[in-house]
Amino acid sequence: MKTKSIKTNFKFLAIIAFLALTFQSCNNDDDSIELGGPVISEFEYGEGHHGEDEDHDHEEEAYAYKGSDMHLEATITSDVKIASISLSVHTHDVEPGDDEVEWDFEKVFTDEKYLVLNPTFHEHIDIPSNIPAGEYHVELVVTDEDGKSTEVEGHVDIMEPITISEPSVDTTVTRGDDFHAEFMINAVKGIHNVSVDVHAHGLTVAEGEVEWDFEKEFEDKYHEKTEVEFHEHIDVPATAPAGEYHIIFTVKDEDGNTQKYETHIDVTKEGAITKA
């Protein structure tokens, strides 16, 4: 009888142990199928930037141009359907200059093509031409239908599409002579033309003098070039009133973007005056 009781107790304990193991196994299975949030990989934005992948093991400096658009792309992996994708571009350290405005871009994408499993995010956003150049912060937030979110971020350098450097312009010129002007131009979209405007305000026109305003567009030597030296000599009439003149050089690219360089020149009285 004692042996039978021991066997009965052993069977009972074995059943309890089996049930406990089964319960624990179920719990482990529950843990193993718990769904995580979205995974964002290969996030690319602007030019010159590549996400970390097998071909690019480090991030390169990202850049984009004012007045153009910025390319953005990311691979999204998700266990449940995506509910929304939010994009933000902003800056805290760049102050607007004259004729510039602050720019903060925010948009929530709920396009049908994104509200699926494992979508690829691909957008191009317009960059205004009147914002300050500098470093901007980019944030991408993906939220799934379970309310779980994942965020990635980076920085992009928004640059001028046209730059003028190394200017050399005469500061004085004798009327009846010419003045020299040169500078380097870089225009990623190609140069359309370079215009020069020379004018003065409030100068007294004496007898034998004629008010002088100079405006001319230079195109032949510069059109469609992306990097070139502007080098011209501009004649000053012998009848021009002496005094200070304002000079504005304006470079226009093929997309309509412009960049200006401004300076002054003194026209002196020395030299012959041709009478009208």
Rank of each mutant, 00 (worst) to 15 (best):
M1Q: 12
K2E: 14
T3D: 13
K4L: 15
K4T: 14
K4N: 13
S5W: 10
I6A: 13
K7H: 11
T8V: 15
N9Q: 14
A14Q: 12
I15W: 01
I15M: 11
I15A: 13
A17L: 15
F18A: 15
L19H: 04
A20P: 01
A20R: 02
A20Q: 08
L21C: 14
T22E: 07
S25D: 01
N27M: 05
N28F: 06
N28Y: 04
D29P: 00
D30E: 06
S32E: 01
I33W: 01
E34I: 12
L35F: 04
P38H: 08
F43T: 12
Y45Q: 09
G46M: 08
H50D: 03
H50T: 11
D53T: 09
E54S: 12
E54K: 05
H56K: 07
H58C: 11
E59D: 02
E59L: 13
E61G: 04
E61L: 12
E61C: 03
Y63T: 08
A64Q: 03
Y65F: 13
Y65D: 02
Y65K: 00
S68H: 11
D69T: 13
M70P: 00
H71P: 00
H71L: 06
H71R: 06
E73A: 07
T75D: 11
I76L: 09
I76N: 09
I76K: 08
S78G: 06
D79P: 08
D79N: 10
V80W: 01
I82P: 00
I82L: 08
I85L: 10
I85C: 05
V89Q: 04
H90M: 09
H90K: 10
H90Q: 07
T91P: 00
T91K: 01
H92D: 10
V94E: 06
E95V: 13
G97L: 12
G97H: 09
G97M: 11
D98P: 00
D99E: 04
D99I: 05
V101D: 09
E102I: 12
E102K: 10
W103C: 06
D104F: 07
F105W: 05
F105P: 00
E106H: 06
V108H: 00
V108M: 04
F109K: 01
D111N: 04
L115T: 13
L115Y: 03
L117P: 00
T120I: 12
H122Q: 09
H122E: 07
E123H: 10
H124G: 03
H124S: 09
